[in-house]
Computed example of a mutant assay.
Amino acid sequence: MRTMLSATTHAPPLRDAALRRLGAALKAIGYEFTTVTPGTHERVNRRPGNAEGHTLSDVLGWSRPFRPGALPEDVVRLLVDAHALRRDGDLWYSLIRVSSFDGELFVHSAFPAAGPDAVFFGPDTYRTVDAALAHLAAAGAAPGRVADVGTGSGAVAVAVARRVPQAEVIAVDINPTALRYARINAALAGTVHVDVRRSDLLDDVPGDFDLIVSNPPFMIDPEGRAYRDGGGPHGHDLPLAVLDTAARRLTPGGSLVLFSGTGITGGRDPLRAAAAHRLDRTDLRWTYREVDPDVYSENLDQPAYAHADRIALSVLTATRPPDDR
């Protein structure tokens, strides 16, 4: 008999409070877990002895099923209160993962993050935060108004808000579960000035921004999963939509930091070409650099990437000239 205790997208406040208490308890005992790519995650979990979880990181990091008695009772109780456990026969599964990064803990979806409302967290999250913080460090003047577009777990917004406490930081997403987890994660970090809102890009948020950061979906996904599918034949529709939004909504002197990826064929980068076509019609000054030449290689076996020699990651930075009047 299968029993389901599932996280819902419109969770009552008590469930969110249970997740916040869980996060606080994990921070208090020094819990840490670095989330890897899905390919690495699957390989590690296939190793002998990894079929079931026996520690907190086994269950809340590696998403391994566990038996009664494997975890501390208070942790299990909080997972139950949060409706974040699924039972299948004698085994229990956590519906969430908890990852550590930048001195904070972040709640996100269990592996495999395949549901339509999945909230992904992993190496690209780390890379996006690093790119945003590097830009902040080089910019000199602190931004007054910041948008994290497609916030997911809220990691970018939290990291920026910690460095620029006086800034208005707005984190937007269209995924109700992402908005829920981003609010919980901001509360765990004590970053109460992160304003989490539902918005399609920045359509539902008025005003302009000094800094826009985004790591939108960029993969070619025939299944059309919202957290993964970038749209269009190359997976570029969403990254390019973010670029168009920034061209309209950046203040004078404001910048966009866009983390994305693309399939490279014969040395040609179609994302860079498409971005250049759009940017050449704006006043934005921009740079584009490849930050990892070969990632997610398991996707090259799929028909959607049969044309590609490799999948590369890139960071595009675009800045509006300051108004010197």
Rank of each mutant, 00 (worst) to 15 (best):
L95D: 13
L95Q: 12
I96C: 07
I96M: 11
I96D: 09
I96F: 09
R97V: 06
R97Y: 06
R97S: 14
R97K: 14
V98D: 15
V98P: 15
V98R: 11
V98E: 14
V98Q: 14
V98Y: 13
S99Q: 04
S99W: 00
S99I: 03
S99F: 01
S100K: 03
F101V: 00
F101R: 02
D102Y: 08
G103N: 07
G103Y: 04
E104Q: 09
E104F: 07
E104C: 12
L105D: 12
L105M: 10
F106E: 10
F106R: 06
V107L: 01
V107W: 00
H108K: 00
H108L: 00
H108D: 02
H108W: 01
F111A: 12
F111T: 05
F111N: 08
F111P: 08
P112G: 06
A113R: 01
A114Y: 09
A114S: 15
A114N: 15
A114F: 10
A114G: 13
P116R: 09
D117G: 09
D117K: 05
D117N: 11
A118F: 07
A118T: 09
A118W: 05
A118L: 09
A118H: 12
A118K: 10
V119K: 01
V119G: 04
V119Y: 02
V119N: 02
V119M: 02
F120Y: 14
F120W: 06
F121I: 06
F121K: 03
F121D: 09
G122D: 01
G122S: 00
G122C: 00
P123V: 03
D124G: 05
D124R: 02
D124N: 09
D124Y: 03
D124E: 13
Y126P: 00
Y126L: 05
Y126G: 04
Y126N: 00
R127L: 04
T128M: 08
V129R: 05
D130T: 07
D130G: 08
D130H: 07
D130Y: 01
A131H: 13
A131D: 13
A131C: 15
A132N: 13
A132S: 15
L133E: 13
L133G: 13
L133M: 12
A134G: 14
H135G: 04
H135I: 02
L136C: 14
L136Y: 12
L136N: 13
A137G: 10
A137Q: 07
A138T: 11
G140Q: 11
G140I: 07
